[in-house]
Simulated assay, not measured.
Amino acid sequence: MSNDIGPTFRSKSNGQERPISLGSAVPAGLGRTLPPGYIHLGVAKEIAPTLHEFGIDPAPVIREAGLDPGLFDDDANIIPHAALGRLLTLSVARTRCPHFGLLAGRHATILSLGLVGRLIQHSETVGDAVQSLVSNLSIENRGAVPSLTISDGMALLTFSIYLLEAESADQISDGSLAVAVNALRALCGADWNPAEVLLPRTAPADQEPYRRHFRAPVRFNQESATLVFPARDLDRRVDGADPMMREVLEERVRQMKIAQGREFSDDIRRLLRTRLTSTRCSAEAIAETLAMHRRTLSRRLKDSGIGYRAIANEIRFEIARQLLQDTEVPLGQIAAALGYSEASAFTRAFRRWSGRTPKAWRADGRLAPIAQSVNVLSSRVKHGASGSLQ
């Protein structure tokens, strides 16, 4: 596909004007549109060389995950997010390395983020760069969603997975934060470190690889995958940023969003995944956030073939499943994070969704096929099983 789309801009270099077209700013292959549930290979391309480091031929592992090894020759190729999860599950099993996702992520660079990575390289400030990541990552990854919050002088950059079929959420979270740190060091300098790192996974026996990469305290068994750093770092200016190049890249991102289109139910899933554990998320509140009437929200979701309550249940189940499977967070804390006033209400809802209590899921559900539970939930929510807060 051609990358020469849109106008040609002019930028000054050494006192002379030079034309910049979208084609010269964007390497061939970048900017392919993504359907919901897919990602550009990007960071995941590092899985193959990481397997090589363990002396393992990646091709058979990639095939077992249902993918063509040839896809990994170009990080602009797209794959299902679910396949990424399967590949990471297989990679952990083959290498017997519980932090495989961290190793793959630490090899990635800011350019592994594709078109968005190039855009944030040319942002005026680190804050602009992070906002560009939050606003635009969906053109590179439609299986996870970042968010930024500021609290008590600290910035919290969080990555959340919002797909029911996601395997190895802990590995994906590890890799996401690993490459996010690499990107921030590219913007702030190699000596930049976060204040702390939060990970939604049990503490591994060997924590040294995490301390070595993040160079900061790492807290496991958390509710989210979050980098915490001083909010003042957002005011840092990005060295080498080219305003004209930024304008060109912003135009390409805008075109990509138009070409990609919007699936309203997917937008709601992304929004709920970033807010469900931290704020009020009734249908009325979400409609207000989107500057629309509650009835308009319901009508647009109905046109997508699903209701708000069903989507909210999907996201609640996904969050609960990830925390039960990957962490030792107490049930009462999970219930509170999902907005339930009592653990018993959460237990009843979880039993309706999965057919088991949260305690039973945690005890033996980690070994059960994920697809079985996903099918159970899909069937139940489509038939109106709720147990959620409205």
Rank of each mutant, 00 (worst) to 15 (best):
R106L: 11
K257G: 01
P36S: 13
R118Q: 03
K302W: 04
H293R: 10
P60C: 03
I370D: 05
I161P: 00
R212D: 15
R118L: 02
L103S: 13
R275W: 06
G261Y: 12
R63Y: 02
L88E: 08
R142A: 12
L297V: 02
E251L: 08
F229Y: 12
L115Q: 12
A371V: 09
S298K: 08
Q16S: 14
A345N: 11
A83C: 08
L377D: 01
S386A: 07
S147A: 11
N182H: 07
Q325C: 04
A25M: 02
G66Q: 06
G6V: 02
S298C: 05
L199G: 11
G85Q: 00
D4A: 14
A225W: 03
G143T: 03
D73R: 07
E46T: 04
E288L: 06
P35W: 06
I139R: 01
P58Q: 09
P98R: 02
T158W: 02
G127D: 11
A216W: 00
A291C: 12
N375H: 15
S379F: 10
I79Y: 10
E342Q: 11
D152C: 06
C188E: 13
L163N: 00
A25G: 03
N136Q: 03
A225Q: 08
A345E: 12
S24N: 00
R86D: 12
I47Q: 02
D4S: 13
K45H: 09
A291R: 09
E208L: 05
L199N: 10
L367D: 14
I172K: 07
S224D: 05
P230I: 12
L164R: 11
A65M: 00
H52S: 07
Q325I: 04
M256D: 03
A363C: 05
R252Y: 14
I39E: 01
A225K: 07
A368P: 00
F220D: 14
E208N: 09
P80Y: 05
A371Y: 09
A385L: 15
R106D: 08
R348I: 10
T202G: 11
L51F: 09
I56H: 12
G387F: 03
S304Y: 01
G307W: 05
G143Y: 08
I20D: 00
G153S: 12
L51G: 10
L324V: 01
H40E: 06
D170E: 14
Q131C: 09
N141D: 15
N77R: 06
E196Y: 09
A343Y: 10
T33G: 14
L137K: 01
E318R: 15
H99T: 15
N3T: 07
I47E: 04
I315L: 15
I306S: 06
R295I: 11
F264G: 04
S138K: 09
W192R: 14
A93C: 10
D364S: 13
A225M: 11
D233Q: 15
R252S: 08
E250Q: 10
V145P: 00
S379L: 06
A186T: 14
F229H: 05
F264E: 02
S304H: 12
A225T: 13
S135E: 11
L34R: 08
R254V: 00
Y210S: 00
L199R: 09
I172G: 05
D68K: 01
L164W: 10
L276D: 02
R254W: 02
